[in-house]
Nucleic acid binder design. Structure first.
Lengths: 163, 163
DNA sequence: TATTGTTATACTCTATAACTATA
DNA sequence: TATAGTTATAGAGTATAACAATA
């Protein structure tokens, strides 16, 4: 905090809300890529807005979930699981460690590696986040209805198919 | 360009590729929000990778498409159409104007407003981008197959439903 | 007073390259 | 030489607040 803060009361960017209309978007509207972007954006904003947790955005949440499900995972493996460079993971994990949510232990078999684990308070926090995510998901479920499994399958096939 | 460039040969961030696996992602995998993020990310990277156009990312492309479809649109209206703050649109449009792709004309009826239009070369560029987007979309179409209309509908309902 | 667009400011996310320490 | 993680650096994207011009 080298400089005085002048800006908003809130660190989480992106209020704005969803796109307006009456404006013609042309072919954009029929493009999967564009609609993907709009939906992702809306979901992201809604998650941030609805969640009471004021500083663990979806990225941290995803990392914590992966660590929870793969105790002892290394940073490089984690980086592949969330499709980010390892240099992106370093500060992310440092942040989680600073908050006492993640513990880092040097591996004794390969001293280059660091094994990641959630701390007890990390597990607690994950439960809280899970609850929020679940309620956010219920909202999404209500919107997509019975098409949910199909939607998930389609999204996965896009992710895999474009790799 | 006030400073020397040290980094890569390419301004477009985000190589990396898609997520790896063998790693358990737990409930994340069944979450619409998460899968939306992964698919959007993959689509974004693929678009950037496949497109020959080396410096007009999806955001610019979307803005240009909206301007093309709504000649004379104002910046504020555009900002609503693409769900971004007007202060975000200012530098975006300045960039497009600098490249000679967009023309800005002060409205004579309301001198606060600026009417946006694509220049001739902006229209040309849009055609090139359209071609790339179309080929990217064909790839997506091949992946999602006949489910495309349903997918588009679902994504739109998510965007609208979360507003 | 309200709105359009601009500016000043700043923060998040992400990457590349080079580096250290291991292996 | 190759890999794990860190650091230095940088840029894209986006936002809030305040402001000037205009309505």
């Amino acid at each position: 905090m080298s400089q005085s803060r002048r800006a908003g009361r809130d660190l989480r960017r992106r209020p704005v809300a969803a796109a307006s209309d009456a404006t013609r978007r042309g072919r954009l509207d029929g493009r999967i890529g564009f609609q993907l972007r709009m939906a992702q954006d809306a979901s992201f904003r809604a998650f941030a807005r609805d969640t009471g947790v004021r500083d663990l955005r979806p990225g941290r949440f995803a990392a914590m979930t992966v660590i929870h499900n793969n105790p002892g995972i290394t940073q490089t493996t984690l980086s592949r699981a969330i499709a980010r460079d390892k240099s992106t993971v370093t500060p992310l994990i440092q942040d989680l460690e600073r908050r006492g949510l993640v513990a880092r232990v040097r591996s004794r078999t390969d001293r280059r590696c660091i094994a990641l684990r959630l701390t007890a308070s990390g597990e607690d926090m994950l439960l809280v986040l899970e609850a929020h995510a679940a309620s956010h998901d219920r909202r999404l479920d209500r919107i997509v209805g019975p098409a949910k499994p199909a939607l998930i399958r389609l999204l996965k096939s896009i992710t895999d198919g474009l790799a």
